[in-house]
Nucleic acid binder design. Structure first.
Ligand SMILES: [Zn+2]
Ligand SMILES: [Zn+2]
Length: 295
DNA sequence: GCCAACGTTGGC
DNA sequence: GCCAACGTTGGC
């Protein structure tokens, strides 16, 4: 087939950057995307997906009750309309990462809800992300740390992924491609509602929504009916999701109104932030690294 | 009615 | 053609 293999949570074809592979699922991640420096990678022994229940569920066939919610497994599930293959890592995810651009757009993450797309980490790798639908730089998170420039003069970072374990197959470093730094912030449509500079006290009342003149432009094409259930779309709401505590190495469920299962964990997190991946906003929260040093 | 998120629009 | 915006819809 094509050489267009994609990698990482960003699904780019970039195989030049430093990458690290999960020896279990064989997924490659850009160090920069999951915030692992080559240095750190040396110490990594194993990558595990954070949620215990979730960890590599496609390696061990577990039938978690949660997935019942995502009803694809049964019968004919391959619905393009649903854009869920049901088998890939992303389809199995039930939590929004909270860090991708789509997540950040969500209300529940304090976003304006303009983009209204599913979390990138939950977009099906097979059906949900069309090659041409790739939006760039999903994680525009933190700027490069002043102390840790991404380009150490020592390593030009060829596709020499530092694999935690002997991984037989490096990602064919073909596809020279041109995607160096995908440019975000391209034109796009301009917001109809200029976005209140200060969302503060927009006291309720008849909401000013819709200023548009009924300019009787051509009526919108009716949307093609979304595929009706018979295996309903796997919708996930925060309420349903058993959110895990953000506390370091804590696997308890978070309290409904908190990121942590207890105040204690909140504290611990703070203390651990000098550590490996304790920062809640760090993409590594997606993955949990087991470090040799921890043993 | 609310929500997740699909699918289309329209500016660039 | 790309992509942000958003109307809209099915499920709950
Ligand atoms: Zn996300
Ligand atoms: Zn999938």
């Amino acid at each position: 087939m094509g050489e267009k293999q994609r990698y990482c949570i960003c699904r780019s074809r970039d195989s030049k950057s430093f990458m690290i592979a999960c020896d279990k699922c064989e997924e490659w991640f850009h160090g920069k995307c999951i915030k692992i420096t080559p240095e750190k990678a040396k110490h990594i022994k194993e990558i595990k997906y954070k949620k215990k229940k979730e960890k590599h569920s496609h390696h061990s066939d577990e039938p978690p009750s949660k997935q019942a919610k995502l009803s694809f497994g049964s019968g004919k599930a391959k619905s393009i309309a649903n854009k869920q293959c049901g088998n890939c890592e992303n389809c199995e995810r039930i939590e929004d990462c909270g860090r991708c651009d789509f997540c950040k757009d969500m209300k529940k993450f304090g976003g304006p809800n303009r983009i209204r797309q599913k979390c990138r980490l939950r977009q099906c790798k097979e059906l949900g992300i069309r090659p041409d639908d790739l939006r760039s730089s999903a994680y525009n998170d933190d700027p490069p740390s002043p102390t840790a420039p991404p380009s150490p003069a020592t390593s030009p970072t060829p596709p020499t992924p530092t694999t935690p374990t002997p991984t037989p197959t490096p990602p064919t470093p073909s596809t020279p491609t041109t995607n160096a730094a995908p440019v975000k912030g391209k034109p796009g449509r301009k917001p109809k509602f200029p976005r209140p500079p200060k969302p503060e006290k927009q006291k309720r009342g008849p909401k000013p929504k819709t200023f548009k003149e009924p300019k009787e432009s051509k009526p919108r094409k009716p949307y093609t009916r979304r595929k009706t259930n018979e295996n309903s779309v796997g919708r996930v709401t925060m309420k349903e999701v058993d959110r895990q505590c953000f506390g370091p190495s804590c696997v308890n469920s978070a309290r409904p109104d908190s990121k942590y299962c207890s105040d204690d964990c909140g504290m611990k997190l703070g203390n651990a932030s000098g550590g490996h991946h304790a920062r809640p906003n760090c993409p590594m929260a997606e993955l949990s690294l087991r470090c040799r040093a921890e043993e």
